[in-house]
Write a protein that binds this DNA or RNA. Structure first.
Length: 542
DNA sequence: CCCAAGCCTT
């Protein structure tokens, strides 16, 4: 085991803090060239930020966002970089292209409403934009809306292309499992002169596999040759994925062995799929063996390959190997991002390997990988758990680091866990005037914290003030705290008040109360009897 | 348009 793992925590923490301070100075410089305004965006929120800021210029019809915002968005989603920066260097942005690029991004992130809103903002969307909007809706499972977008397109005289039809096919296969309807659509597109291609059929194959009909999928694969579009590597990868899910690795081996005979060549995705399947079945050694096979075949392992193996190592808590893998990623030619480090660091924090978290952080910095908010949040939590609250606070307060609400939530919770209620109350007070606004989780944490600190009436008042209707989770947290604090009388009064107002007591509330009684070990007390009476009433009402 | 992995808080 490497020497640093056994080295005293304090020393590692000290170096990490020094490195951090250095980092913040460095980070501050490029941020100026990114954007001058206050809309500092943490990369994870880039798509949200764009959603907020887009409205086209009524004069020119051009989107107002500058290159810097697009850069940040595209930087966050590398696959789309070429869409956002068309090669032909037009200086007039092409509206449909640009809209479509964003719509695609939103579709991928499951943000159908944003994609739809962009479609609505356009004066004359083309077939690609309509198709992308349909895709976004289908991905979100909103099939009726997808169909009405399709109808709208037809009613406007825009002819659907094979891609549009393929999305309908996807919808019928994936969501409705209506394969006959899918076949009818394929017939329809042929009748209307659209080419059905390998993608159309691969979609059906993916749908059949999802529905557990692998035999039918294999049959269709065979048929594709006579239909004039033989399966390609993607079709086979779909099938490999299905057999991996089944745990039928003999069949996967057979498909790979016969590949050249069937006129296709496995790619990185084929092996990533296979390796992932083996990892999911806990077959670590076999997974690593397939990595070797991959390398033998001169197929480049990708960041995905690394993430799959990393996920496996994390599940198995293989600390040394995690560090080793990330450390060697550059030598393996892998372009590792912050997300991979975050995955590893999260797991290391979970299992109490706080010095390993800091080791990975300094590893990132040495390699020039820019940590994101999530990285810092994990680091902050690790420092707290390791008893280094003041160091965590130091990062929190550092210039150059933009904390988000999760950072605040972590600190609030950790202050309470450490019994540092003065710090807790101070941060709560600061939240009121700060630039980050509290979310539902914040309120839960505050309710928990007030109860832990024995400030029961304050907690009750707090819940009253944020949630007049007692509709939220906060009441459940309050109930938990009251039971644990022996304030069942207060709780009964509160429940009585809610019932009187005709407010619904939900299951979650009772889950929390029952848990609290169990934790307290007072399940036989007279008080729980009263609670049970209320529960009975509720059950009758429902 | 079809295939692989993944990150922070109660």
């Amino acid at each position: 085991m490497a020497a640093w793992i056994s080295s005293p925590f304090a020393a590692v923490a000290r170096t990490a803090i020094k490195t951090l301070c250095f980092l913040f100075n460095v980070l501050h410089l490029p941020s100026r060239s990114w954007s001058s305004s206050r809309d500092e965006i943490n990369s994870a929120d880039a798509s949200d930020a764009v959603a907020v800021s887009i409205t086209e210029d009524p004069e020119t019809g051009i989107l107002p966002f500058g290159e810097s915002l697009l850069y940040r968005l595209s930087h966050h989603i590398p696959q789309h970089r070429h869409y956002l920066f068309p090669r032909d260097s037009d200086d007039r942005p092409r509206r449909c292209d640009r809209y479509n690029a964003l719509m695609k991004t939103f579709a991928r992130f499951g943000k159908a409403d944003e994609a739809l809103r962009l479609l609505r903002e356009m004066k004359t969307p083309n077939v690609i934009c309509y198709t992308t909007a349909m895709d976004a809706l289908v991905r979100a499972g909103r099939c009726e809306e997808a169909e009405s977008v399709f109808s709208e397109m037809i009613s406007l005289g825009i002819a659907p292309d094979s891609v549009a039809y393929s999305i309908l096919v996807k919808m019928y296969c994936f969501h409705h499992k209506r394969f006959v309807s899918a076949r009818n659509i394929i017939q329809l597109m042929v009748d209307r002169g659209c080419e059905r291609d390998v993608v159309t059929y691969s979609t059906v194959i993916a749908g059949l596999c999802r529905a557990g009909k692998i035999d039918l999928a294999s049959e269709l694969m065979e048929k594709m040759r006579s239909l004039g579009c033989p399966p390609d590597v993607v079709s086979y990868n779909v099938l490999i994925h299905a057999f991996c899910n089944k745990g039928d690795f003999a069949e996967v081996e057979r498909i790979l062995r016969e590949s050249s005979h069937n006129g296709w060549e496995p790619d990185s995705v084929s092996y990533n799929t296979y390796i992932s399947g083996l990892c999911n079945m806990g077959m670590t050694d076999e997974a690593l063996k397939q990595l070797d096979v991959m390398l033998e075949k001169a197929l480049h392992p990708t960041e995905v390959t690394l993430n799959i193996l990393l996920g496996m190592l994390c599940r198995d808590s293989k600390i040394t190997e995690i560090i080793f893998f990330l450390a060697r990623s550059f030598e393996l030619g892998l372009d590792v991002g912050a997300a991979s480090y975050n995955t590893a660091m999260t797991r290391l924090c979970e299992i109490g390997e706080f010095s390993a978290v800091l080791k990975l952080l300094s590893d990132m910095l040495k390699k020039g990988i820019r940590p994101d908010v999530q990285t810092f949040n994990i680091v902050i939590m690790s420092l707290c758990r390791a008893g280094k609250l003041h160091k965590a606070k130091h990062i929190f307060k550092s210039k150059g680091f933009t904390p988000d609400i999760v950072t605040c939530n972590i600190l609030l919770h950790e202050f309470c866990l450490a019994g540092e209620f003065a710090e807790f109350h101070q941060l709560v007070a600061e939240l009121g005037s700060g630039q980050v606004s509290p979310d539902a989780i914040t309120y839960n944490i505050i309710v928990d914290g007030l109860c832990w600190d024995g400030k029961f009436s304050k907690a009750i008042e707090f819940v009253r003030s944020i949630d007049l209707e007692f509709k939220s989770d906060h009441v459940a947290h309050l109930a938990f705290g009251l039971v644990k604090g022996g304030r069942v009388g207060d709780l009964l009064r509160l429940l009585g008040e809610m019932i009187e107002k005709g407010l619904l007591l939900d299951v979650r509330l009772f889950e929390f109360m029952i848990q609290a009684f169990c934790k307290k070990g007072s399940c036989e007390s007279i008080e729980i009897y009263k609670i049970c009476l209320i529960l009975d009433k509720m059950l009758r009402r429902e």
